[in-house]
């Protein structure tokens, strides 16, 4: 039911979907890094980066606005950066008198603010594109290939697998709590803070115990299938010529963007 809230993979058959997960992960990180090191206020370079993103959207047949629609996630955080508009460096652009506060936006501050905004917004779209076109298990395989320690990839694999099972359990606990608190109608809603915290804490404790006991049963299931403490995995992926081509091409485009940004 709620599972789709979690799974951002978008079933499609496209060039981008078929690319090796390692290539996609590497290009995503390179893209984000490239945005991060572009100097502030390089709107042309940022615009080209955005075009690249649109092209990626199109090639993966998600529809041009797909990643755009979901990129609102960064918005709340933008609040944090607003104060930078009034950076004392640079030329004042205006004076705003708000009661007893005087705010002075400067050209430097405004450029900085919008650069942060654009960087963040481009980066999050690229990350969305990555998970929309790559099955998460493939991504885990990619990290194994890229020599991420096995213990971490294993924890992540378990986390991914049981995320759904445990959030289901958490939701059931939540529903049970709601059902019970509804029966208390007439009394003060919600109850005391400590009481609410206690109920939530008990749910967390219960969830903990269930997870703990489940991990025992999983351990048994692993033992039953030959696990002796050393995990082995197969990696059914191999880089094709197309993958290499895509990697080199993307890096070339990113280098071009950097060139645009730094050579004036």
């Amino acid at each position: 039911m709620h599972i789709n809230v979690f799974d951002h993979y978008h079933f499609q058959d496209s060039l981008i979907h078929r690319l090796d997960a390692r290539v996609k992960a590497a290009v995503t990180v390179a893209f984000i890094l490239s945005n991060a090191i572009l100097p502030d206020g390089n709107w042309l370079a940022f615009a080209v980066a955005w075009l690249v993103l649109l092209l990626g959207n199109d090639l993966s047949r998600l529809g041009l606005g797909y990643t755009f629609k979901r990129s609102y996630i960064v918005l709340p955080f933008v609040l944090v950066a607003i104060s930078v508009i009034f950076s004392p460096l640079g030329k004042p652009l205006a004076q705003w008198h708000l009661g007893f506060i005087t705010l002075i936006p400067t050209n430097f501050g405004v450029a900085r603010f919008f650069s942060i905004l654009v960087r963040s917004w481009l980066s999050v779209q690229m990350a969305i594109l990555l998970v929309a076109t790559t099955q998460f298990p493939d991504l885990i395989h990619a990290f194994e290939h890229l020599r991420l320690p096995r213990i971490l990839t294993t924890i992540i694999a378990f986390l991914y697998r049981y995320l759904f099972v445990l959030t289901d359990e958490a939701l059931r606990l939540l529903r049970a709590r709601e059902a019970r608190s509804a029966s208390l109608q007439g009394r003060k809603r919600g109850g005391r803070l400590t009481w609410r915290a206690k109920v939530t804490g008990s749910m967390v404790g219960q969830l903990f115990l269930r997870s703990y006991e489940r991990s025992d049963r999983i351990y048994y299931a692993m033992l039953g299938r030959g696990y002796t403490g050393h995990l082995r995995t197969l990696n059914p992926h191999a880089m094709t010529r197309l993958d290499w081509l895509a990697l080199i091409l993307s890096l070339a485009v990113l280098s071009f963007i950097q060139l645009l940004g730094w050579v004036r």
Binding site: I155, F158, Y162, L163, L171, L173, L174, S211, Y212, S215
Partner: peptide
Amino acid sequence: PLMGLMAAFIFAAQML
């Protein structure tokens, strides 16, 4: 498996 499940637990508990 314990650490894996604990990670999933922390994740799920953050919803409560």
